[in-house]
Amino acid sequence: MSLPQPKQLIASMVEDLAVHTQDNPDIVMVGIHTGGAWIAQQLHQQMKIENELGLLDISFYRDDFSQNGLHPSVKDSQLPNIENKTVILVDDVIMSGRTIRAAMNELFDYGRPEKIILACLLDVGHRELPIQADVVGKKLDCPLSQRIKLSGPDDLTLSIVTL
């Protein structure tokens, strides 16, 4: 399977997000650590969003926390005011939907957004929850035995990891 270049996917996402946000000047972008935060930083810059970029670590909100324990590199979540704002929630790869569910749970602990727009660099299918991205850089068919890994943050690259 040939993987696309993140730079081209991000440019496409900027165009799609502009359509979703054209009549809304009060936007907050929030990236999910780690890959989603890297993508969000680039989107935030290219879209020239005035509100501060938010960063979200969902480690304590995961539904597999009791099974897997605490991830060794928990980061602080840093969110600007999201109350009654349109939040663009950004992740690198959407698969089961569980990461996004955890991220939305955490967002609502910080306030009640008017709307959440989900933007993901890649969609590899295999949903376990009924969660779909509004903006996707690219959809890929990826077998369950493989994962797509985003490396960065300076030069973003995608690679395939076989389990």
Rank of each mutant, 00 (worst) to 15 (best):
K7G: 04
V124N: 06
T86P: 06
Q46S: 04
Q46F: 00
Q146S: 10
S96M: 08
L156R: 04
K139W: 05
A103Q: 08
E50K: 11
L156D: 04
H71S: 09
Q42F: 10
H44M: 13
R127S: 01
V124R: 14
I117M: 03
D134F: 01
T21M: 09
L79E: 08
L70G: 00
K48M: 02
E83W: 09
W38Q: 10
Q67S: 13
L70M: 06
I88F: 00
S2P: 15
G35Y: 05
Q46I: 05
V30W: 11
M29V: 15
P72Y: 14
L122Y: 11
G152C: 11
I117A: 00
V124H: 09
V161M: 08
S151K: 06
D91H: 11
G69Y: 03
A133R: 07
L79N: 09
S2L: 15
L156Q: 08
G111L: 00
S2E: 15
R112N: 07
D26V: 13
T162A: 13
E106N: 13
C142P: 10
K115S: 02
V93L: 04
L79Q: 08
V136T: 14
K139A: 11
D134P: 00
T21D: 01
K7H: 07
T162Y: 12
Q41W: 14
H20G: 02
R127C: 02
V14Q: 04
I49H: 12
T157F: 03
I27H: 03
L3P: 12
G31L: 14
V136S: 14
L9V: 03
I148P: 14
P72V: 11
L150D: 03
I58V: 12
D57L: 07
D26A: 15
R112S: 08
